[in-house]
Design a protein around this nucleic acid. Sequence first.
RNA 1: GGCGCUAUCGUCUAGGGGACUAGGACGGGGCCCUCUCAAGGCCCAAACACGGGUUCGAAUCCCGUUAGCGCUACCA
Length: 482
Amino acid sequence: MTDTTRPRLRFAPSPTGYLHVGGARTALFNWLYARKYGGDFLLRIEDTDKARSTDESTRAIFEGMLWLGLDWDEEVVYQGANLPRHQADAERLLESGAAYRCFCTPAELEERRREAEARREAFKYDRRCDRLPRAEVDRRVAAGEPYVVRFRVPEGTTEWDDLVHERIAFPNKDIEDFVILRSDHTPIYNLAVVSDDIAMRITVVMRGDDHISNTPKQILLYRALGAPLPTFAHLPMIHGLDGKKLSKRHGATAVGDYQHYGLLPSAMLNFLALLGWSPGGDREVMTLNEMIELFSPEGLQKKAAIFDPKKLEWMNGQHLSMISLEELEPRVTPAIITARLATEEELVERREWYLRLLDLLRVRSRTIDDIVRQAAPYFLEDIEYDPAAVAKNWKDPAESADLLRETRDALARTEVWDAPALEASLRGLAERKGITAGKVFQPLRVALTGLTVSPGIFEMLVQMGRDLSLKRIDKALAVLER
RNA sequence: GGCGCUAUCGUCUAGGGGACUAGGACGGGGCCCUCUCAAGGCCCAAACACGGGUUCGAAUCCCGUUAGCGCUACCA
């Protein structure tokens, strides 16, 4: 028996595409389990399908994991490197009599499958090669005839206590003698997985429930190989808004897409965690550490969940407001620089001002991109005037110009450039003119930002500073008087 | 077709025999706050798939039905 006090889990993606949100969630639950119970979380790249695996995909998986902050223990295991052990395990099975050689060709099998179909029967390999006389097998092997290795499924029932589903049972008669080694002597998935999980001393196998029907085959292999069984946990799938399996048609499914879209990894993880798990009660918004704290396999869901991008955005907004400015800054800064709003040096120079700006903008943002979009008026020399904003708030150019001139004067006369003083000046102006304050604020807002929406007018004036604010009004006057 | 898994508001879920007039969140609608937009607060609409049992009593346990999904390769 292995050390039961220290669980070992793994995430085993095949590098045939980008890290998918479903895969990310599987990784997250494995990671949470390991972190919660003081275990190990390993990463194994299942690259045995040479035709579809690429180095680029492997890199994308690393990148996605790193971005999410799901760090793994020990060296990454590449399944392809374990070929000799896989073959040795198949050989052992052959020697112990748990497996046998099968000389049926793919074409023959296909033919028989078709016949069964025609008779409306379920096709199952009929074990004919298992009945071949020993001498004939030896002769055909010696003659160099290609063969695959099949596992001989015993009588009985194979069952296990799933961490998510409780007891699941399969009658062995429904499991055919599956191939474990191809005719080119490379292993089939189920053998490779079991061989590696044994070698890596994995104690908890947590994966998507599309693997449920592989599990009895794998249990049979563990037994035949004389290895202790891990605990299995089969997580439900994630579906798209239409209830079908999540795919490209449903929009972004690669975690990299969300990274570039301006999401926070903590929000992504929080959202993913809630898709298939609940801490119980009303708890929803959590930090990673809180998730570790609250995690328990008890809360794992059996039912497939639908990926709702709206709630993801909301969740991101929550995290945007929740984290500290020090944490937020490094996530926004690259986007600010990419958008050419400022250089790294400028931001460092005005760090305090910059953090205050982020604080001003984040409350009305759901993504990092939202923050960047709103940040433009605070950095750029020139702004663009939104036609709708102009039409609405600068309806009569001459009148608006007059008002803006008075506004400018009032602001310019304000001694201390802080919110209370500015408020007093502007409200005083409105009162003198006998109009509501909003009538003063809105045209000013357009002059300052070119938009109808922005943070509060006083905090915005403070943030822009006296010079830029007055310059913006002058430019607006120039535009209006043209 | 065979085998398996699943089934609470549109969506994510709480619930593990009486505390249920079924709770929360997203989204939707309304109101409040208010210089705009957000955020926040308050309110509204919205669900136990169906049929049988078990029980004094079922969203909760059992069995069917239906539906959805998954697997059914010398893919992973």
